[in-house]
Design a protein around this nucleic acid. Structure first.
Lengths: 193, 193
DNA sequence: ACTGCGCCCTACCTACCAGTAGATTGGGCC
DNA sequence: GGCCCAATCTACTGGTAGGTAGGGCGCAGT
């Protein structure tokens, strides 16, 4: 499917993978051109600047991720299973060869990111925390989850734990480390206070 | 004190700040040279390559951090206070102008890091988890902390939460976000299961 | 058949990168 | 004075970065 997609999309596919493995500063137009066997100038035709390319890529990812979460909600009504599906999204990325969560990677490059991309990053995190907060609130109402304080605070802590676990796990090349931390985070919701 | 330090140390001081704010790929010999009003070639005299410079910087930071933790242990016997001091280390870095934990930043650059530096990064995280695990185990023995499972697993989750919280907080330029997540993590140890 | 346009190309630009060669400076020591 | 040596300098290399100018190819509509 990648091979028959229009060039503009294939450019974003490659860029996405490069950002996830190397980060914003460490990928170049030349890298994408090589991967697609086209010239650098052709990429500039589709995306006039690196800033615009990255913004488009981030926006596409954000929409796609929101779509997948909506699908999870449609498919599974119970909060525990929803949460497991959510976590698996991250874990799958990590398993497929040193890929970090795209937005976790972009967040770490926040210091050098074009402003438009940084805005997108913060919007994405806000999306994630809002989604998680709803799942957590729902789960507590059904007495599947137990936690103190406001759902949005618990969601922020959960998201931070997952992002941090990916960071450490990827550096160690150890997916099991992420899985261990993730299951502990879920465990503390389903049993502890 | 910085101004009278030998050049080799001042180079590492500047490099450290640059890595914390921009990352490994986004700082250059020219940046350091400008900051110290010397020429690039002088930096190569002290550190023949960027890889070696970064390794030296990482090693120095690791030793310094271990020293500070030892000092905390000497000063405060109770686990709760030790943990608060630990967290304040991170928070102070964040407060001083968009600085991320040095090792969190390096971990996010793991995909492009020289091998020697990557080894140092994983060693640092191992140090951190070991220290935290000891504090947690001690705290549980004294019934100051409550948590399930092995201390090292709880330590890994705690470290991941702190690193992830820094990542998100820095992207948002919102120190309060880190503080909120951090206090929630401590709270779940001191009250919950 | 001609035109317009989407798409990709070659060729080039300027700026910057890490790293090197070799001269120069200046203080301590004999 | 003459020497050494640490430390810094100027000047440069080969390579790569993002970005630009302008030409050509092929397919649509007319």
């Amino acid at each position: 499917m990648t091979s028959i997609a229009p060039t503009a999309d294939r450019i974003l596919d490659i860029a996405e993978g490069l950002v996830q493995t190397r980060g914003y500063e460490a990928f170049s137009y030349a890298d994408i051109a090589d991967a697609l066997s086209i010239r650098k100038a052709s990429i500039h035709y589709h995306y006039p600047s690196k800033a615009e390319l990255t913004r488009a890529m981030a926006a596409r990812y954000r929409v796609a991720f929101a779509g997948r979460l909506a699908q999870v909600e449609a498919e599974f009504p119970d909060p525990t299973r929803r949460l497991m599906c959510y976590i698996r999204q991250f874990q799958d990325a990590l398993r497929e060869g040193d890929h970090m969560c795209l937005y976790g990677m972009l967040a770490s490059d926040a210091g050098t990111l074009p402003e438009a991309v940084r805005t997108e990053v913060n919007g994405f995190f806000a999306d994630q925390e809002a989604w998680l907060a709803r799942v957590l609130a729902d789960g507590r109402a059904r007495e599947e989850f137990r936690f103190d304080g406001r759902p949005d605070a618990a969601a922020a802590a959960l998201l931070a734990g997952l992002e941090g676990a990916m960071l450490v796990a990827r550096s160690r090349r150890d997916v099991a480390h992420f899985a261990a931390v993730a299951s502990r985070l879920v465990g503390s919701l389903t049993s502890g206070g």
